[in-house]
Design a protein around this nucleic acid. Structure first.
Length: 322
DNA sequence: CGTGTTTGACCAGCGC
DNA sequence: GCGCTGGTCAAACACG
């Protein structure tokens, strides 16, 4: 299930204006919709339209509220992450000789510390990835972009699948020393020349958290974007539940933390900023794109459209006969 | 039959 | 040089 599927962006085409009034009446109208449609008083129709308008307004309001909460959580988590990084910039580099040496040789900490709010005490669990990132960073510094995504999933979900919109081919799996959970290795299979690789491993302390490490940059657009798929390529749509996200890319690999299970937090103070973000033209455009793509993929929308068109044709023919 | 996944084997880097 | 570890390969297998 996907986040936007919960929002029901499908158009209510209002094929039959009386459908909200009474289910019994609705059935009757459907069986004789042409005749009743002509006899129905204008007042009744207006009332139905007003009700419909109110319903859409309420839905719109609800959507706006959800988006506001989402942006609030994003802002809060980001500030939390920045604060955490400024307090403890090298907290993760303590446990291993190899890691210490790699730190000494070159790069600063390639990955920011994940926020405890999102993934619990996960610093140790990511140490294996940390090692790898340090080494890779040393080898491929300035060549390959490394980013990491923390995805909170259901604990019962045993798959190592992180839906990010790209097509991945699994080419290996390995049990690492520090983590009993196997690490899966993926290559981008959308483009044969795409150099991007992905590693996915469960957090050792919180196995409901998947740690996905991306290496390199795609040399092709996101296939889900090309296909106008609204769900899988946006962080806010992952796993179809409202989520919080924090993003940081300063002085190292990009780290994105997603909490797909945390309920929304209406007590955050930064409502103004969030509302401004929601009201921004870019966000409105993004929302419109999401809705448009959702509509085009919605079989219900297509069916309703077909019914509306055929109904019009029938009605038109009947009118001509009369 | 084509495509993707699984999994044991192999290789390279690193520490001792 | 040896052993450990992470990363990759490729044959076998599963699936539609």
């Amino acid at each position: 299930m996907e986040y936007f599927s919960l929002l029901d962006t499908s158009l209510d085409l209002n094929i039959n204006p009386t459908r909200l009034i009474d289910e019994t009446q609705n059935k009757e109208v459907q069986s004789n919709f042409i005749e009743l449609g002509r006899k129905q008083p204008v007042k009744e129709e207006t009332r139905a339209l007003v009700e419909e308008l109110n319903r859409v307004n309420a839905e719109n309001k609800k959507l706006t509220e959800m988006l506001t909460v989402l942006c609030e959580n994003y802002t809060a988590l980001r500030s939390q992450l920045v604060e955490s990084m400024s307090k403890n910039p090298v907290a993760e580099q303590v446990s291993r000789k190899r890691k210490a040496e790699s730190t000494a040789t070159a790069a600063p900490t390639p990955t920011p510390t994940p926020t405890p709010r999102n993934i619990g005490n996960n610093s140790e669990s990511s140490s294996t990835d940390e090692e790898y990132s340090c080494k890779k960073q040393r080898e491929e510094h300035g060549k390959a972009k490394i980013s990491r995504v923390y995805v909170k999933t259901e604990a019962s979900d045993t798959s190592l699948l992180v839906k990010d919109g790209y097509q991945w081919r699994k080419y290996g799996q390995k049990v690492t020393r520090d983590n009993p959970c196997p690490r899966a290795y993926f290559k981008c299979s959308f483009a044969p020349t795409c150099p991007v690789k992905k590693k996915v491993q469960r957090s050792v302390e919180d196995q409901s958290v998947l740690v996905a490490t991306y290496e390199g940059e795609h040399n092709h657009p996101n296939p889900s974007t090309l296909e106008a798929t609204p769900s899988s390529n946006r962080c806010m749509t992952l796993n179809s539940v409202p989520c919080t996200a924090s993003l940081s890319s300063s002085s190292g690999p990009t780290t994105i933390t997603l909490d797909l299970t945390k309920p929304s937090n209406p007590t955050t103070n930064d409502t103004k900023t969030a509302t401004q973000t929601v009201n921004s033209p870019a966000f409105q455009q993004f929302l419109a794109e999401q809705m448009a793509s959702s509509l085009t993929k919605d079989p219900g929308f297509k069916a309703a459209l077909a019914a509306a068109i055929s109904g019009r044709i029938v009605q038109h023919n009947q009118t001509e006969k009369w």
